[in-house]
Design a protein around this nucleic acid. Structure first.
Lengths: 244, 244
DNA sequence: ACTTATTAACTTGTCATACAAGTTGATAAC
DNA sequence: GTTATCAACTTGTATGACAAGTTAATAAGT
């Protein structure tokens, strides 16, 4: 890695390297090289202090950065555990800034909606080319679950079912990056779902469109699937907004 | 926001909220609400300690998390400055984990290449629909710059020119999320550019394909542009690999 | 009067120590 | 053999101290 601001650019400014940066670098190496395996426990702060010959703040700050990045889990009283690194780990590290960015800028909300339309269009295109019977069955099942949540009037679970449906489409591609991004984008948007508590009456349309998407995927019609998906997302885009 | 692990999921585990989490929350609010404006200086750690009635570690950890997220810039001796929040800020917060993920997994490298092919295909599609004369001119200029770097034998600058070309295509869409993602993905990949120092002889093909892409954009042919772009990326995918 | 050094005050970086709060595993009690 | 208790360990937080770097006001020089 480069320096304190660990941006992979290579063209950024250089900052004085703090001690915690160097500690972080060492720890990162050990995670990358497998010395610290997922699920195993990290050394205690004291042990790391002694080993690296630095004070506790340096170790704590490095550990905290690993924690913020989602690479380790720390709990008071117990040692830190190394987490499995997956695509969602990377994507989730955007959560903090993404929420901030979206919450104070209506423009970015629009940009995100547009981006999601493009991404989901590309994903469903791939899904329609690769889906097998099991995938189709899983999709239909998820639509049914969502329909059940609607019937029960469980708004929050209805949203989760929606997220799961789109994730399942992403999963057909076999690419975990799509899955992570699809889930994250809808998660960010769902914060601004204005009609969470009072139903809009358009939920039936959503379910119908979801079924149409499944049909197109099953038919192996990428272009159709893409069109329906994008129309679906454009229609439902108004559900996510700052204005109440 | 929720709790310590600031993941927007809503379905995650709840952790005991540390003091620094609460401080972070307060600071985040002030940044979001514009009390702390971009470019302005943050209060000193001492001031925040007194105001919130917490010790220095709590304040420092919160500030460090803002720093890691790219929201503020801190330098020893001087107060922290609030940064402009943009799409790149969010995307860059993935850098750390992304590098780790890619460096120890050849699979994820493949996944990323595939994802990039999809994204760039979608972007050039949009670009071909929206590009104006200025955009075309800018693109041709960037190809010329890249050709010059090749002629000069400046490998690193050649890569940067490549990044700039793809970013310019993303910029035509007017969507900063595309720009940030396009730049980030190629940045991550370029770490694994195996032929940085010895030219492969295929650089001419790259330049030729870039020109073909510009032609297709200028012709307003989204489908063609997309096809050429994806073929271009598939061909050059082998340049980015773990193996030397 | 204007520019340049110098210095003093302030701020972040780091360490050491201490204690509170939570976890874990061993021991004792039943 | 199961449960309760406790001692050792670990992270969370506070405080005080000093080093290292920045900033702005002051003094020196031209």
């Amino acid at each position: 890695m480069d320096n304190s601001t660990h941006h992979a650019d290579g063209r950024g400014k250089i900052t004085r390297q703090r001690l915690s940066d160097q500690v972080l670098e060492r720890l990162q190496e050990r995670i990358a090289s497998g010395v610290f395996r997922p699920g195993s426990k990290m050394p205690s702060e004291r042990e790391l202090m002694d080993e690296f010959g630095v004070g506790r703040p340096a170790v704590r700050e490095a550990m905290q950065r690993l924690h913020d990045a989602g690479l380790i889990s720390v709990a008071q009283g117990g040692r830190a555990r190394v987490n499995e690194i997956e695509a969602t780990t990377a994507v989730r590290s955007m959560d903090f800034v993404a929420q901030l960015l979206l919450s104070d800028s209506a423009e970015y909300l629009e940009h995100l909606k547009k981006a999601r339309i493009m991404f989901e269009g590309g994903m469903v295109d791939i899904a329609a080319r690769q889906a097998n019977t099991d995938d189709i069955m899983a999709l239909r099942k998820l639509v049914e679950i969502q329909r059940a949540k609607l019937a029960e009037g469980r708004a929050q679970d209805y949203i989760y079912a929606d997220i799961d449906f789109h994730r399942q489409i992403a999963e057909i591609s076999g690419n975990p990056i799509y899955v992570a991004l699809s889930e994250a984008m809808l998660n960010w948007l769902s914060t601004f779902h204005v009609h969470l508590l009072r139903w809009t009456g358009n939920e039936d349309a959503t379910l119908r469109e979801h079924l149409e998407i499944v049909d197109a995927i099953e038919a192996g019609a990428p272009e159709d699937a893409k069109k329906i998906m994008q129309a679906h997302l454009e229609r439902s885009a108004s559900l996510y907004s700052h204005s109440v």
